[in-house]
Each structure stands twice: as C-alpha cells, then as structure tokens.
C-alpha cells in the first residue's frame, strides 16, 4: 500500500506541471491560436524561476521564496509568449513556425545567459530545495486522499488544482470565457457582435505564457536540484494532454494524471520490485510515456473536437 501511495505522490510531481501547461495551452487554442511554443515557454519560466531561487536562497528559504519564484517564472513565461502573440495576431504569421522559432530560441537563450552571468560559466543553474512539505496538519489524516495529496508534497500541487478550478469557472461561467471560446470557434461571428478578436487572442496567448512559465518551474522543483536549460519534451506532452483532454478542463485533468502516471513508471521503475524484476532495459521504460502518447492519440484523435478556427490568423477583411 505504501508503494502505491509513493507512486501516486510521484505521479503528482509529473501530472501537476502537465495539467498547468495544458490548461495554459487550452486558453491559447480556445482563443484560436495554436501554441506549439509551450515547450520553449516552459524552459524560459523554469530558468527565470530557478535562477531567482539560486540568487535569493542565501537570504531566504521555504514557501515564501517559492511563491516569489512562482511569480517570476510566470513573468518569464509571459515575456516569451508576447512575441508569439505578436506574430500570430498582428503579423498573421504561420503560428507553427513562430512557435518553433521560440522553441529553438528559449533553450539556446537560457544556456547562453546562464553561461554568461554565472561566475562558474556553466550552463546548469542549481538550487537548494527548501520547499518540501512533509505533511499538512489535520488534512493529512484524511484516509487515502491525505496520503496521496497532503503528505510529502509541495504547495505547487494545490496551486495546480486551484488553477484547474479557476480555469473551468473562467472558461464556462464568465463573459470573458464565452467570448474567448467564440473567438476560437467563429471569430467573424464574434467580431460582428462587437468582441475584439485581436485582444481576446492576445489575452489567450498571454495566459498560456503565464501558465506554461509556471509549469516549467513546477516541473523542475520536485524532481531535480538544478535546471539544465531543457524540459525534455514536456511542452509537447502537454499539447498531447490538451488534445487527449479534448480542450476541456476536467478531461485535461484526467489526461494529465494518466500521462503523469506513465512518466512515473518510466522514472521510478527501479524502485518498484515488480517492474524491476521484469528485467526490461531502462530505455524501454523511458520510452513508455511517448509510446503511450502515440497509442492514446491514435484512439482519441478520430473524433477530435479542436476549436474550429484554431491556427488560422484572423483577418477582419476576409470572408
């Protein structure tokens, strides 16, 4: 039983960043802009957040430092999402190409910066993990849920669920959310009733930048002690989560839990006697999340319900 809890807690470490980033992607795509740059934005957010911790950890530690780093990571992500919004909305550029350019830019840029500003001249940014919460008082005594969510955890886990709830409410229950969705489905109709499509798309991309930037930090903190200028395809996995989740918040949650679990198996198989005894080479465990993604997408893409206008630049004059 302890083993199962261990696995589920580990799953949270991988699922929460996927959840946050996929929700970010949801806001962008629901507004009609494909955001393939999630990977690059995660790198940027991860770097800014971790570098902030690296610089400040001599003066402060614990949750407040993490909270500040969260805001810095969000700002870093937001900053990198702006060129994507500008290219997709103002310049009506090919959104996939602009996203690819940012994916290329971010890892090179953060490694360049890290090697330039760190006295040691190395690319990796290290940090001390002082954010671990052994158990949350009272709540950890709840059976099952307490063991999974409220022991050996990070505040980022709760932040992830909080963002999920807020996203669902914003998307379905507010005027803003409905307008955003209208821009992704039928921008001309939205425009005809006075909605500023350009503005909505900008906001959609900016939200995705904020959340993907946060995702980069949330991914790095629990599983590592340094940031190496890469997030290993997590931005793309988040896109797969978004597609598998059919662009709907609650489904995205289930999809990210599934992918997180797959990632856990690939990362922690050596701690699970059953899997270790199978004597399967480590490379095959590392492949699992990616193969699982392919299989899952093969079964779920046929009836894909992507926003109708996603990826198409909005031109007021077009018919």
């Amino acid at each position: 039983m302890d083993m199962l809890y261990l696995l589920l807690r580990q799953t949270m470490y991988f699922s929460i960043p996927l959840l946050i980033v996929a929700l970010g992607g949801m806001f962008s795509e629901r507004s009609g802009v494909t955001n393939i740059a999630l990977e690059g934005i995660m790198v940027m957010g991860g770097f800014t957040g971790i570098y902030f911790i690296n610089q400040m950890q001599s003066q402060m530690s614990g949750q407040w430092l993490l909270v500040l780093a969260i805001f810095i990571a969000m700002a870093g992500g937001l900053l990198l999402s702006l060129p994507h919004a500008y290219a997709s909305v103002n310049l009506k550029a090919d959104q996939v190409i602009s996203g690819t350019a940012l994916n290329m830019f971010a890892p090179a840029f953060v490694i360049y910066i890290a090697r330039m500003i760190q006295p040691s001249g190395i690319a990796n940014v290290s940090f001390k993990n002082t954010f671990f919460i052994h158990e949350v008082p009272v709540l950890c005594d709840i059976p099952v849920i307490g063991d999974i969510l409220f022991k050996n955890t990070y505040i980022t886990t709760f932040l992830g669920f909080f963002i999920l709830i807020v996203s669902a409410i914003v998307l379905y229950k507010t005027r803003f959310g409905m307008r955003l969705r209208a821009c992704g489905e039928h921008p001309h109709a939205a425009d005809s009733v006075g909605i500023n499509v350009y503005k909505m798309r900008y906001i959609g991309v900016m939200i995705s930048g904020v959340l993907a930037g946060l995702g980069g930090l949330v991914l790095t903190v629990p599983i590592s002690t340094e940031f190496k200028g890469a997030v290993n395809g997590y931005g793309f996995l988040a896109l797969a989560v978004l597609i598998f989740g059919q662009w709907k918040p609650m489904r995205i949650l289930w999809a990210s839990l599934f992918f997180g679990f797959m990632q856990t198996i690939s990362a922690a198989y050596s701690a699970i006697p059953f899997l270790l005894n199978l004597n399967i080479p480590s490379e095959f465990f590392k492949m699992t999340p990616y193969i699982a993604t392919l299989i899952v997408l093969a079964f779920s893409s046929k009836s894909s319900k992507a926003p109708k206008a996603v990826g198409q630049p909005y031109d007021q004059g077009a018919r």
Partner: peptide, 29 residues
C-alpha cells in the same frame, strides 16, 4: 496515423523522436 486516425503529425513526430533516441541508445549498447 495522420492519414487514417487524424493524429496531429507534430505530436506524433515528436514522440517518434524520443522513441527513436531511446531505441538507438539501447541498440548501440
């Protein structure tokens, strides 16, 4: 996958990148 099951080719190709990399690492060993 794209032609018959409508899987987005970008995601599928990215996944094939990682599968290829791990597979080649294993086979070289």
């Amino acid at each position: 996958l794209k032609a018959y099951l409508n899987v987005h080719e970008v995601i599928a190709s990215i996944m094939m990148n990682y599968i290829g990399m791990f597979m080649v690492n294993y086979l070289i060993k």
